[in-house]
Design a protein around this nucleic acid. Structure first.
Lengths: 338, 338
DNA sequence: CTATGCTGTGCAACCGGTTGCATGTCAACC
DNA sequence: GGTTGACATGCAACCGGTTGCACAGCATAG
């Protein structure tokens, strides 16, 4: 309870107060079993009296264990990431780790820089949906423990969200509703997730005998979705599966503008469940499991830090379709194009 | 380009390589003007050859300048915060600072803990919309530089988003459309922003001669908005201003369920512009300026770090109404209740 | 030609912890 | 009863930088 001055109480002050050596104070915290119970007691009492708090930084310097991890994402403001960040944060907390957050702005260069800046003060790094090349990722992984989310690089531990399963369900769902001609509105070509989703919808359509076309919304945004609508309608489809929810919302807005009712005349499926049931009408989508991914990535990293051995573990999270209000029966006859 | 081993190159190795003392290597980076240009040159060359990178942690230990700041928010996943976090991140980056992110889960206790955990390794902390008591905040501020966002504690530098101006515009906007009876759907009672918004709508209504009632959605969530709808309609109002966009979305959904058309029969205004134009119909709302707030808070913190003197600066950000599609003319006659 | 001052560099202490090793104590064992 | 060993604690070096001070070299002033 003593009034602490700026900078705080040090181990030496506690040692003096308790009448022991500095090393004993240190051990009272790190290996109390090495000391007699009474000594520990006495030291803790002195520490409490002085308001001592171990200095994270000093400890890190001598042990090399920083007690920090970094999480780097392409865009904090993309609704896909915040839940993941939050989960990672909570999980790290359970191990008494602090989380550095980095925002790469979708820029590989920036990502590289951040990796460097954090390097000196974290024990491990989690890279979510990295835009960096496989080579650079591998190079960084050589220097310090790295865990990837939604990226598959040989030899590096990773957590993958398999949106393929959910997309397959979505395709089946549309087929069940009688849709015979659908469109996949694809996202960034460099995205691992986009590749996976595209492949899944193709595979499922083939199996179900649906006619499938592709429309590209190079960046996943509301505007891109909006602009894709004409191309989508031109394909003569009655339903669309979008790369993500934000794109899907754009598509919905575009359909609205053109007087196409959803789900009466056209069905739309999103991906990532980034918006929840918040929208009107609420979007049928594929669960993202980003929360579990964040949590898992941290615990995987902790595992790697514990034993050097774990290298190259992979977790794959399956996803599922969440049916809400933007999908319904295919219109009786292929609808007249507006 | 030399192959670095885990742990990295140290100042001593560079010193040996360059044939100088360790202190000179240090000075080559921190105060090159103290050294002859050739010496600096030689040291940098040696450093480059060895792949030396100054160790952030060691430097922090001896200087007390950590080069890190912490940002603590109540809920990363609340769409209000990610843009702010992102902006803070970017701004910190410009000063070569790294950002720790803390998530308090809306829990004062947790917030206190985080503050403690970060204490040892950051130079300053930004507390966004804290749930902590004024006393605890003041206590922490005594120990280290603190900047607040959306909280007004005497003597502590802060950035306030004045949603009052935007709310006043919203009220005027509704009055212009002929609404005479409106409802404010309030948020958490402990929230500084909620108090402010409530006061603003009251003040504006009085000035404009509008009839105003209150409905409480204790937590700001989609469900809370949904559940508030009956109470709102019971007031006989033709328009509602909600504490935030998420609540507003809930209200829209509830109105939809009851067959009340928006904006034909009822107008809704949100606050924070957290969802952008993504929704259908797009929400009329009050800009949040959370991006500027994040940026400003960091630069204010940097200022405080630079000179001990700045204490107790305040920035106030005015907000404005963003008109989209959920507001319109009041129905001719007070609508028949559903 | 000696006193004075400036410049560039090195020495060594320090930041606040951790940890290998040495020392001292005491009980158990042969 | 002296040896052995377990246990508790202290000493001092170390982590990788920073920085006050001392000192050497040289130029300028008196």
């Amino acid at each position: 309870m003593a009034a602490e001055r700026k900078g705080g109480v040090t181990i030496s002050q506690v040692a003096k107060e308790a009448g022991v050596a500095r090393s004993s104070v240190s051990r009272a915290y790190t290996r109390p079993d090495m000391l007699s119970p009474e000594t520990v007691e006495r030291i803790k009492a002195a520490a409490g009296k002085l308001g001592y708090v171990p200095n994270h930084t000093a400890r890190a310097l001598s042990t090399g264990r920083y007690g920090n991890v970094a999480l780097i994402v392409p865009d904090v403001a993309n609704p896909f990431f915040p839940p993941m960040i939050r989960a990672a944060q909570v999980e790290a907390d359970r191990s008494d780790f602090c989380v550095f957050l980095g925002n790469s702005d979708e820029d590989p260069e920036k990502e590289d820089q951040l990796l460097g800046r954090f390097a000196g003060q974290v024990e491990g790094i989690i890279l979510a949906s990295p835009r960096l090349s496989d080579e650079r990722i591998a190079a960084h992984a050589l220097l310090r423990p790295l865990v990837l989310i939604n990226r598959d690089v040989k030899g590096i531990p990773k957590v993958l969200i398999d949106s393929g399963t959910g997309i397959a369900e979505a395709t089946q769902h549309l087929a069940d509703f009688g849709h015979r001609n659908i469109v996949y509105v694809s996202g960034p070509s460099t995205s691992w997730s986009n590749k996976q989703r595209r492949a899944a919808v193709r595979h499922a359509s083939k199996k179900l005998g649906l006619e499938l076309s592709f429309v590209s919304a190079s960046v996943p945004s509301f505007e891109a979705g909006l602009q894709a609508v004409d191309a989508i309608l031109a394909k003569g489809a009655t339903a669309a599966i979008a790369f993500d929810d934000v794109t899907a919302q754009g598509i919905l807005a575009g359909l609205g503008e053109r007087g196409v009712s959803v789900p009466g005349e056209f069905s739309v499926v999103g991906c990532d469940d980034a918006l929840g049931p918040l929208t009107v009408p609420s979007l049928t989508t594929v669960s993202s499991r980003s929360i579990e991914a964040g949590k898992l990535a941290v615990s995987l990293l902790m595992e790697v830090l514990g034993s050097q051995a774990v290298r190259d573990a992979s977790y794959v999270l399956e996803t599922h379709l969440i049916v809400r209000s933007t999908t319904g029966h295919a219109p009786r006859r292929g609808r007249a194009r507006g």
